[in-house]
Amino acid sequence: MNSRLLLASLITWLAGCDRPGVPHGAQPVAHDSLAWTQSAFNTNCRGCHSQGAEGAALPLMNANYWAVATDAVVIEAIAHGQGRSMPAYLDDEGGPFTPAQIVSLVQGMRSLWGAKGSATGGEGGAISPRVIAGDAGAGAAVFSQACAGCHGPQGSAGSVIDPMYLRLISDQGLWSATIYGRSDLGMPSWSQTMPNRPTGLTAQEVADVVSFISSHRGIAQKASDGP
């Protein structure tokens, strides 16, 4: 009798509500605050994309980027990855974020680092390599005038037509490197003064020079080719 009582009280206790062991559950992560964006970015992205001269990939804490980049390109890069070294962050592809989280991340980054008024991303739509077809022949001329001073055989900036290098970067990446530059590292952005291009490059010239550089890859690679 006694033991039955014990058992009964044990069961009631286990079924009761304040058992300290019950997990509180995966807190549905509130992903709509800028604080969340910042912490998600710091944990997941900052190792590659930072600001100024810091970080080896394109700085994203950077107003120039958000002035040009469209949401579509950014979301696609984050969700599915880009090139060889940008991982896919979508949960369906093994990443940590739901589609909704990726959208809030992008909106959050835009309001943290973008200039006011770039809410949807401006010009990028019109100058994307997906829109303008580049001509490698014309690009060769642009390259020898505007870029070769730094990237040619005598230049100090190193080759950008080295096939080893080109196997690691996508066309989209080349395009972004040319458009945004890295002013802290001495690489001008497309609207800055370059040899023989005092007012920078036109959208067509960017497309041409990218297809010229890309033609040295040797292996065909699409804009968002995975490894």
Binding site: G47, A53, E54
Partner: peptide, 17 residues
């Protein structure tokens, strides 16, 4: 790998490769 950026002193003067 995803949270600690390459310090600036190791990105300056590096070639694209």
């Amino acid at each position: 790998w995803s949270s600690l950026p390459t310090p600036a002193k190791f990105t300056r003067g590096r070639t694209p490769l």
